[in-house]
């Protein structure tokens, strides 16, 4: 498959829509998300990022009960003008086939931080996932001080830290039991 030379997004007055973004051709070089009608364009993850995503997918899938599904890179509709693409999600409806999943179907959103996305993942995305009521948020952050994992649980509309670990190690009991070893 040949990569597009450019991605054309229809220009019109006012905010961009979910429809605008869903119509974009697959661009594996970057991710285009929609936040309150603005476009957010971020580069695709480099090898270290992808490697971590792969390990998370393997370990979460192995531990997941049969009534949930772990997926990669799906479109999640948070609101009429909010479309995000979490690195991984844990969804309630295994085997379903949607172009876009409503936030209500998500148990957990997982983001692996890259240098380009640190502030966005920790500030904006966290807020957006909390606002749409996603019960759990897992942030995986390869800092200079080590591979930090932080799991959050939604409590009265805000994320409170549920568990955290250094060196890529984290044991969770929610939303299901899993021992993450990402080092």
């Amino acid at each position: 498959m040949v990569a597009p030379v450019q991605t054309l997004v229809p220009a019109h007055d006012g905010p961009w829509t979910i429809d605008d973004v869903l119509r974009l051709p697959d661009d594996r070089g970057q991710r285009i998300e929609l936040v309150d009608g603005a476009l957010v364009v971020s580069p695709a993850g480099r090898m270290r990022h992808q490697r971590l995503v792969g390990k998370l997918f393997t370990q979460l899938s192995a531990a997941a009960p049969s009534d949930v599904e772990v997926t990669l890179d799906i479109n999640v509709r948070l609101a009429e003008d909010r479309l995000l693409i979490p690195d991984l999600t844990i969804m309630r409806c295994p085997g379903a086939d949607f172009l876009m999943v409503p936030a209500a179907e998500l148990l957990m959103a997982v983001e692996v931080v890259s240098p380009s996305s640190r502030t966005y993942d920790r500030v904006t995305k966290r807020h957006l996932y909390a606002e749409s009521g996603i019960p759990y948020y897992l942030l995986v952050d390869p800092t200079d001080a080590g591979l930090l994992l932080r799991a959050y649980q939604l409590v009265q509309g805000r994320y409170k830290e549920l568990a955290s670990g250094n060196d890529g190690i984290l044991d969770l009991e929610q939303p299901f039991e899993v021992s993450l070893r990402l080092g």
């Binding site: 450019q6 220009a11 580069p43």
Partner: peptide, 16 residues
């Protein structure tokens, strides 16, 4: 026509 009425985001698989 498409170019004139679109935002063109170049293929850019790296940090901007």
């Amino acid at each position: 026509a498409l170019l004139e009425h679109s935002l063109a985001i170049p293929y850019h698989p790296h940090p901007w």
